[in-house]
Structures are given as structure tokens and as C-alpha cells.
Amino acid sequence: LKGLAFNDPGGKPMTLADHAGKTLLLNLWATWCAPCRAEMPALDALQKEMGSDAFEVVAVNVDVGDDAKPKKFLEETGVKALGYYRDSTMALFNDLKTRGLALGLPVTMLIDGEGCLIAHMNGPAEWSGPDAKRLVVTALGKSD
């Protein structure tokens, strides 16, 4: 999945390959998606607790249009630890849909440091809960 493309928090184009060596929890979300709104605080908490040189939650907004609405959404949901990644073209979502990985939003993928898919899930989850943390620890090759 190294070629998956979106914009970094500074607005510059990047791909997953730019995160080589780091395990990622890649999440696609939109402001109009109620389950996305519900899980965003948990993704933020996971990044705050477990984010490191080895692991990052990369939550990519896929709303079309400008940045105003997504940034307001993050402010309203109290997100502070997540970087502001963005793809306003929907190309990232459509690429994942073509690969059979995305059925709707949110969609989340666990990707290893080589850019290979470990697991994926459609729909929301409690990303700051013990099961999610164990999944990340296991993906990082650490013991609890």
C-alpha cells in the first residue's frame, strides 16, 4: 500500500512510503459521517497514548471542498494529538474501494513499516480500548 497518496499536515502531497519503518493505523473519515465523529476521540486518545517513532495514527479526512469544515470538526470533537491529513479528491477512498478494502466510512487499516496491510476494518471501533491497544502492541512486535 506504499503508493496510497494524500496530503500531510502541512498540505504537501505524500504517500504511505513517506512513513516507511513506522507502523500506521490509517483511518479515513469525513465530517458528514456520524460513526467517524463518534470514534475520532478514541483515535486521538490512541495517538496520544501510543504515538511514537514506531507508531502513528494517520487519520485522513476525505471531504471534498476546503479545509474549514474538517478543521472545525476536529476542534468540535476535541482532537489535539492527531495530525491533519487530507485528501479532498476522494482518490484515496476510491483506490481503497477498488482494492475491496473500503465499503464506506470510516475505514481503518493497520499497516506495517514495510507498507504491507496487516488488517483492515470497515465501520467504527473503540480505538482507545484494550483490544485496540493489544493489536497495536502485537503489530509492533512487542509483548504486553
Rank of each mutant, 00 (worst) to 15 (best):
G21I: 01
K22P: 02
K22L: 01
L24D: 08
L26N: 01
W29M: 11
C33N: 12
C36S: 13
R37F: 02
A38Q: 14
E39R: 03
P41A: 09
A42L: 01
A42P: 07
D44Q: 10
D44A: 10
A45L: 04
A45R: 14
L46N: 08
Q47R: 12
Q47D: 08
E49W: 03
M50E: 05
G51W: 07
A54L: 06
A54I: 02
E56Q: 15
V58E: 02
N61D: 15
N61H: 09
V62H: 10
D63W: 10
V64F: 05
G65S: 10
D66L: 07
A68M: 09
K71A: 14
K71I: 09
L74F: 15
L74R: 10
E76T: 10
V79C: 14
G83H: 04
D87V: 06
M90Y: 12
A91I: 00
F93N: 02
K97G: 12
K97D: 14
R99N: 08
L101H: 03
G104F: 09
P106Y: 00
P106K: 10
T108D: 01
G113R: 03
G115F: 11
G115S: 08
L117N: 06
I118P: 03
H120T: 13
H120P: 02
M121S: 13
A125H: 13
W127L: 08
